[in-house]
Design a protein around this nucleic acid. Structure first.
Lengths: 133, 133
DNA sequence: CGGGATCCCCAGTGATACTG
DNA sequence: CAGTATCACTGGGGATCCCG
């Protein structure tokens, strides 16, 4: 707290920040959370729509992830008691805000994509050389 | 190759964004990555220092995570061939940039901490009600 | 259609001991 | 000091079947 940090009134220390970040990561770090969030951020979406759009997800994981996101208040589940059951999932305000924040990470990745690729290549080469160099 | 723009205003589709975010998440989504990054962002740090500062981490996971971060070019490993071996880990530029981006997530979490807590409580209550209402 | 319940597998992780 | 090696465990996630 020796330094005036972001406008957020909070003056969390580095350790606390790490902790807070972890909380977010635990929330959206799941293998499918982001995909679902993305799909739902474009408007209400139905279960089977998600099943197709997220691509690769199983029914089980779709349900589980949906429940988790709903529990955290990132999605709203609406059931229409029609003859063929119909359920819609809608992203909440905070989910959309979160999505915006995630874009920051995307830009970071875009910016340094080449750098990271180079670093990996260098690392892999250096660790594949025959010992007894 | 088809894209040569540096300004991230690029029009990546939602699906691509989800994919990109996942890449970042896979990189720092590990249980210990953030903690190490935080510790290393404050200046060069030694192995045992990390072992103590990250608190809770095992030698094995420290090594593994360190290697992964090094491979991705987020950390630089420097070995001093002194009598007692000495190795220092230093966060790179892009790691510090990433850290900045992660702060965005922190602020999000701070802002909506109460909202999320309330959502959870509501969800849990609603799903614990005695059947046969 | 939209799930819940069950079984199973394996990647990630922890604990401990050994080495240069 | 800074790792590496080995073993054992856990739970995240896939597959499948069933139900309202």
């Amino acid at each position: 707290m020796s330094q005036g940090n972001t406008d957020v009134s909070a003056h969390v220390g580095a350790e606390d920040q790490a902790c807070t970040v972890r909380q977010v990561l635990d929330r959206v770090g799941g293998k499918w959370s982001i995909g679902i969030l993305v799909a739902a951020s474009k408007g209400p979406v139905r279960f089977t729509e998600l099943e197709r759009s997220v691509e690769g997800i199983s029914r089980r994981m779709l349900t589980l992830t949906l429940r988790q996101l709903e529990r955290d208040g990132l999605l709203v589940r609406t059931v229409y008691p029609t003859v063929p059951p119909k359920v819609e999932y809608r992203a909440t305000e905070i989910a959309l805000e979160l999505y915006d924040s995630l874009v920051t990470l995307t830009t970071w990745a875009e910016r340094h994509r080449a750098t990271i690729a180079a670093a990996r290549e260098a690392y892999d080469r250096e660790h594949a050389l025959t010992p007894t160099s």
